[in-house]
Design a binder for these strands. Sequence first.
DNA 1: TTCGTATTTAAGAATTATTATTATTTAGAG
DNA 2: CTCTAAATAATAATAATTCTTAAATACGAA
Lengths: 144, 144
Amino acid sequence: MNTTLADIKDNFKELGIKSTLPRVVIYQALMKFTHHPSAEEIHIGIQKKYPGVSLATVYKTLDLLVQNNLASKVVTDEDKVRYDPRTDQHIHLYCKKTNKIVDHEDAGLEKLIADYLNLKGIPGFDIHQIQVNIKGELKTIIKK
Amino acid sequence: MNTTLADIKDNFKELGIKSTLPRVVIYQALMKFTHHPSAEEIHIGIQKKYPGVSLATVYKTLDLLVQNNLASKVVTDEDKVRYDPRTDQHIHLYCKKTNKIVDHEDAGLEKLIADYLNLKGIPGFDIHQIQVNIKGELKTIIKK
DNA sequence: TTCGTATTTAAGAATTATTATTATTTAGAG
DNA sequence: CTCTAAATAATAATAATTCTTAAATACGAA
């Protein structure tokens, strides 16, 4: 994974994005979350390491990452936009209890849907992307 | 379809919702759209027929409809919340060109996904709802 | 390495969608 | 028809996000 500072700088350079400390820190923070954080969560997350960075810069940088295909936006019925450091197609699980969004790998299901739609298509519609969001609850593991 | 004024009033009465003109007008307007409108679109849409209704009432009424399972919220990566007068499961098409959201019927695909997930499930996750959003573009029909 | 310049940033003001407040109006029970 | 709880219009308040601007910075060229 390209998560070291040097890797990220290279990553940015390749895309012609000026490599600044706020950008590197924000991108790194986004990748470290196990769920998909909001701009505010990222802003709070980087306070210790880099207290000076403003929320506006967090928003601008996240937008830049999305524009350059280094991240994608994720939305919920309620509240704010979340950010996902992946841009390839994958399934999202929305937990109604914790209100968090996490990735879910199921190549079988993805292939099933893709194959079906490749065959059948949608009349009058050009498919670019298929999103599958599964809503529910993370089961509580009861310890003995 | 229960779209006449009397039908809607009955609908409301059954649910113990007080039947007021703004509510009936807003619900009727929501059902008339071919895409899924925002609160603002509905507000603008009812101006002619009922100019006095305030935007706050539109929001409150839409929320009431959602609470009572007469409508559901639909979100996009950008901008505002849209409302859908259906609450059963169905696929949404997001057009990137027109920025509109419309319903798509494909019982075959829905069954395929439901059967697959019924069989396989998701370890540690309780599935409540499956959302399939297909993003792309409505093809332009070129007239000869 | 130092310089010059275009870009980026911090800070906070502005904007926009949505929600809350409140005085007034209204639906519908009795 | 009256009464009362609930709904509405008007508008203020809030919260997420974007914009503005002066100061700071990255980085190519010398």
